[in-house]
């Protein structure tokens, strides 16, 4: 009996420090955020309960609408750019069709170690009039006065950011896919080759079905990751010029910390959570359909 009691005490003694920190800093604030989203603030003071007015104002704000569109573009590039490129890179390295595959892997993975702030400022310089991208285009097009103008276009200003996201995160997926490819028994590949299966057949019939689970997991991560992107956009463009490159997290930051409108900012964060859960649920449905079709 005493034995049981001390066991239970040890159980909670081991579990609670982690659990309490986690609950206090992540779970509790979510509920606070939800409550705050129905309130109005002025001059750091709580003014009162205003129902869903914040939500209505947010949805009608053109800057928020631009942000949603930009987040959506980031999501598309993450799911349909980073992940497929990651699969290709992983497969090329996994099959060891090149010598020095370890070298390639290590170089391509390098950006993962760099902070998004550094990445953003570096690529700002790359696209600047004294940058390597500008120099490259100048020499290719033979136009010594070329400068990058895409940032001025309201619809395409986000494109350089999308490119940098590919540069920064593709290798993360590459590493995950390599780890999962290594779990496929090599006898599977040997048998397929002995049976005379073409490379396309191997990829289509063995590799992609084996990877489908992890591709799905990565898509979920890419979606939730793309909805929270902040650092890179903040340091690279700050949402500008005008508000062409705004994203939801930046909008939230501005409302909370520039305008001190805590209620409004909280409502934005709740919208981000809802969208994130929504997209992941849709993704799950699509994945289930896909599975049913192939089983």
């Amino acid at each position: 009996m005493i034995e049981n009691k001390s066991k239970r005490l040890s159980y909670f003694g081991l579990l609670l420090p982690a659990f309490l920190i986690y609950i206090a800093i992540i779970i509790f604030p979510i509920f606070v955020s939800f409550g705050l989203s129905f309130t109005e603030w002025k001059h750091f003071q709580l003014k009162g309960f205003i129902g869903i007015e914040n939500y209505i104002n947010i949805i009608h704000d053109p800057i928020f609408q631009t942000s949603v569109v930009n987040n959506f573009k980031i999501m598309l590039v993450s799911v349909f750019g980073q992940i497929p490129l990651g699969v290709i890179l992983a497969y090329l390295l996994f099959r060891k069709w090149v010598k020095k595959d370890q070298f390639f892997q290590m170089m391509i993975f390098l950006p993962i170690t760099i902070s998004s702030i550094v990445v953003a400022l570096l690529w700002n310089r790359v696209f600047s009039p004294v940058g390597i991208y500008t120099a490259f285009i100048r020499s290719v097009t033979d136009n010594p006065d070329y400068v990058v103008k895409i940032f001025e276009n309201p619809h395409h200003a986000i494109v350089p950011i999308l490119f940098v996201l590919l540069w920064q995160f593709t290798s993360l997926y590459m590493i995950i896919f390599i780890a999962n490819l290594q779990r496929i028994p090599s006898s599977v590949f040997e048998a397929a080759t002995l049976d005379g299966a073409s490379e396309a057949t191997i990829i289509w019939r063995i590799v992609l079905p084996e990877l489908s689970g992890v591709i799905y997991t990565c898509s979920v991560l890419a979606i939730s990751g793309s909805l929270k992107s902040f650092d890179l956009v903040f340091a690279m463009t700050g949402g500008g010029p005008v508000h062409y490159t705004y994203v939801m997290a930046l909008y939230l930051y501005q409302q909370t910390f520039t305008f001190n409108n805590y209620g409004y900012g909280s409502a934005v964060s709740i919208i981000i959570v809802i969208l994130s859960v929504g997209f992941i649920t849709i993704g799950q449905k699509i994945y289930k359909n896909f599975q049913n079709k192939y089983e």
């Binding site: 982690a18 986690y22 800093i25 992540i26 939801m248 964060s269 959570v273």
Partner: peptide, 17 residues
């Protein structure tokens, strides 16, 4: 409950925090 935390991002709690 811990697993649930994987889906929650800094953005969603930064204001109350």
């Amino acid at each position: 409950l811990f697993t649930l935390g994987l889906l929650i991002t800094v953005n969603s709690v930064i204001t109350p925090l």
